[in-house]
Amino acid sequence: MTATVGQEQAAARANDVWKVYGSGEAQVAALRGVSAEFERGRFTAIMGPSGSGKSTLMHCLAGLDTVTKGTVMIGDTTVTGLNDAGLTKLRRDKVGFIFQQFNLLPTLTAQENILLPLSIAGRKPDPAWYDVVIDTVGLRDRLGHRPAQLSGGQQQRVACARALVARPEVIFADEPTGNLDSRSGAEVLKFLRNSVREHGQTIVMVTHDPTAAAYADRVVFLADGQIVSELIEPTAETVLDTMKKLDAPVEVGN
């Protein structure tokens, strides 16, 4: 099935995307003709069992991985076929990342980590927005600390601030709560949802945690490299139900 939203413009879009690894006998198709749109100003979760291709889809959407067939667009930029320089520019201007492992530079302070993408691109932060971000993540008194001096939740909030501060077209979050206890996880998810509701940020999150997916506005389900279902305004229960159906041996339609 195809997950589309009939809105004026999508922040990210996949069009009949195939991703095939290996060749000949050992050929494995991770994505099989996925088409999806992720609309602006919304929080979308991608769910699916292990090996469903959800991470691959995100990597392809973000331009981290190439697609075998089909096209990927972010905003009005066609990602497919961009060279390294084009991809670098894309990552600078339009894409933000939040990782499961936080991926902060251990040698830099929290503030330096947050400002790193801007300083790499050689830009100055917008002070008003920077203040908003810092206040939203609630880290003002921790800015001079190094990652090792912060708790896991705090580190992930630094990572979120880092993704937000450049105001990218879309933020891709890869299991952002995977390494956090449930309380810190909830904090981070609330914070992500707020940044969508209050500041119109677009977020695409990959997760296998139904509770986390419930924070999203919409959930897209993947199985065996294809989109098999979707939920609007999900709750943990509806997500869990859908997941159970996906795990069932019988192919579930829409």
């Binding site: 320089a85 670098t88 990552r91 201007d93 990342f97 790193l116 993408p117 790499i120 880092r162």
Partner: peptide, 16 residues
């Protein structure tokens, strides 16, 4: 590797 990949992911170019 991971650190340098992160730099690339958040927008550093190969030249940087």
């Amino acid at each position: 590797t991971r650190e340098l990949a992160l730099m690339r992911a958040i927008g550093a170019s190969g030249k940087q």
